[in-house]
């Protein structure tokens, strides 16, 4: 009896010591990484942190009216687009879409990509009954499809029509982008890539073709490219009147 409780004590001390080391490492780590301003890979076992907030700046002045590169890249990366043969056009999923708008008064027209705006206070998260719709510490708004019951209240609440409901059985999903019938989904800001220190597929495709209309980065880091770009020139949030403080911002509209 006493022997085993001694054992337990030893194990507890051992555990606490190691936990302390781990906590120390976690406390030091942000300081270490702060010195490098470029995107870096967070260790796989370290949780995302609220020290960062990921965002995308869309410079619509650089968007060509016939360009669809970001949309195609997203489809290929995340496996939507041609995965739902039975659904009609209004039922198919759209994580990102190209929209052309025209100023009612002046006739000035613009093409831009629309996707989840990754709000700081997302209406979809507020209304979700189970907490499946949530905002990750680093600002990415996601659906936990494990606890999504498919009630679609988040789709009613989203001001940007950013979310889709999967209307039929899917096959051959990507391992890094699970999606399935009866649950709601939307742009994940390619969290699986971001977690490895990479940039979202849409941003990568846009710069690969030298359009450079999309800038991805940490909004909390003053020295990041996106923060510098936002500071240098004007940009807007869509539906700024709602006060959602979106992570995606637009220039040129």
């Amino acid at each position: 009896m006493s022997e085993s409780s001694k054992l337990a004590d030893a194990a507890r001390r051992n555990f606490l010591a190691r936990a302390g080391v781990a906590a120390g490492a976690a406390a030091v780590a942000p300081g270490v990484f702060l010195s490098t301003s470029t995107a870096h890979a967070r260790p796989a076992d370290e949780p995302v942190s609220s020290e960062k907030r990921w965002g995308i700046l869309v410079d619509t002045t650089k968007c060509a009216s016939d360009c669809n590169d970001c949309v195609t890249a997203c489809e290929n990366e995340n496996g939507w687009g041609s995965s739902e043969p039975n659904s009609d056009a209004a039922q198919k999923a759209h994580w990102i879409r190209s929209v052309t708008i025209k100023n009612k008064a002046t006739g000035f027209a613009k093409t831009l990509p629309m996707m989840c705006q990754h709000c700081e206070t997302p209406p979809c998260v507020d209304v979700c009954p189970t907490g499946a719709s949530f905002r990750r510490a680093d600002g990415i708004v996601l659906v936990d499809k494990h606890i999504c019951i498919g009630c679609r209240y988040c789709m009613m609440a989203c001001p940007y029509k950013a979310r889709s409901f999967v209307h039929e059985d899917l096959h051959d999903q990507k391992p890094w982008a699970p999606r399935g019938k009866g649950t709601v989904e939307s742009c994940t800001m390619c969290d699986h890539r971001v977690d490895k220190g990479q940039i979202p597929a849409c941003v990568e495709a846009c710069s690969a073709d030298n359009h450079n209309a999309l800038i991805f980065g940490d909004l909390y880091d003053e020295n990041s490219e996106i923060s510098q770009a936002l500071k240098a020139k004007d940009s807007v949030e869509l539906r700024a009147d709602l006060g959602l403080n979106t992570g995606v911002r637009y220039r040129g509209i």
């Binding site: 949309v71 056009a89 209004a90 879409r97 052309t100 708008i101 009612k104």
Partner: peptide, 10 residues
């Protein structure tokens, strides 16, 4: 703005 074209019925 008015929407001229959209892939998602905006």
């Amino acid at each position: 703005y008015e929407v001229v074209s959209s892939a998602f019925f905006d």
